[in-house]
Design a protein around this nucleic acid. Sequence first.
RNA 1: GGCGGCGUACCCAAGUGGCUAAGGGAGAGGUCUGCAAAACCUCCAUUCAGCGGUUCGAAUCCGCUCGCCGCCUCCA
Length: 486
Amino acid sequence: MKPFSIFNTLSRKVERFEPLKPPTVTLYSCGPTVYLPQHLGNMRAYLFVDTLKRALRFHGYDVRHVMNITDVGHMTSDEDAGEDKVEKTARAEGKSPREVADFYIAQFKRDCAALNIELPPDADSTDHVSPPQSVLCRATENIGAMIALIERIIAHGYAYVAASGVYFDVEKWRGAARVGRLSRQSLDEQHAGQRLEHSPDKKSPHDFALWVLNQPGHLMQWDSPWGRGYPGWHIECSAMSMKYLGETLDIHTGGLDHIPIHHENEIAQSESATGHPFARYFVHNAFLVGMEGAKISKSAGKFPLVADLVAQGVDPLAFRLFCFGAKYRSELVFSLDALRAAQTNLNYFSEFASNVPDEAVAGPDSEWTAGYLERFSAELADDLNTPRALAVALELVHEAYTRNDKSIWSALHKLDSVLGLKLDERRLAAHAQFPAEILELQKKRDQARAERDFNRADALRKELFSRGYEVKDIPGGSTIAPRRNP
RNA sequence: GGCGGCGUACCCAAGUGGCUAAGGGAGAGGUCUGCAAAACCUCCAUUCAGCGGUUCGAAUCCGCUCGCCGCCUCCA
């Protein structure tokens, strides 16, 4: 099997991927901030992580995946002033921050399920985790880990306590020559000529808050060694990733926009505390962009959601396929035409799967499928080249059709472990026992056809369609299946 | 001002020095078919924003020009 390789933002190169302790891979990805629904641009990012995870498994790795849920700490202006977004929504909706977070977490989980994005299980309340563990964890439930991490940073001399909060000492970190590894920008470049309001407590405008103090207007506050307050917005990722996955991660993912600030700061915090590398591979996904080529963002106001796909008659899994059509590092242009193209491809796979008989599932595959598995695997190994991997999958089905050989189920099923199109479910649905009245209608229609009463036959087909079933004529009879497009 | 990226057919999109510029969708024609659906076959970029250069050879490297976008502030 071709060794897996992936683009590492740290080196700006496609690198051979080698985890610290194979076959285990520790993977941390920045998750949602839960004060608004996740739009399709966000979903592309989670889809990318899901695909990476599935591809790594395809290559035999045992992936331990942690995703955070930010239910506190993101400010509307900069990192140590302004209003907490969760709180802002809470006030607007007359709910508690916890209720707001719960509401959007539930929606996030539903949307992920619709796209067949596998989320890690919810974290239980365990404090110490020795073998790396897959969890979906909330910031507000890990305040203790954050405080402990901040204490370590202070103990190492990289943070200081001021009246308005605990700040990370960026100048000191710069002295250690460790600034700008990801963004390739020096501090002076970063803020050249910028309007940057900053607290007079800070030694340098580049310093960022680890813990915020004396903001009595905030609803969410916790006790800490420095007083009542709340965490800064970078610290949760450092604290939770280390808690569940250990102090050096194999892979850290996120959107491109996280490179210059969020991940740069995460590295600074984590490495100043532990003294060793935070993450070995940083992998960043590009954006889904609107038809005018502009980024779709939360603050921009308008953006499509998973629910909008359904409203357009597009299966959410077609959105998966649509995203497969471009590499994760390329901007992808959102268009209805391209989505429909993906829907057509989904139907192609689905139709084939529906017609695979039980014997072909139980029996061995034809030997000609082996090459497809190898090519598929190689394309994934090449920096997750999903467009080519998808092309291989389409070719496999195409060849099965032209050979009229349905003995490819094991191979197809294996590909679907990465594609995530739920082909097995589709096959089973097509083989399900249909209600007797439906079968009766089908029978009546077959009869009408046999008697060449085509008006009656067409009426019965319409009747079945309106009840959610599609009949197709085949030599000597017909087949029936649930309607594809809802 | 600084940093980064993009421009490949009607649409989405691979390909970053050398076999015929992947693949999908749309479109056209055909096979099959009572019709429909599905499937299959054929066609569909002498050309990669433009110009110039390097090279035996470039969509791929270099330079310039034009157009577009992201980040530097919460953002996938």
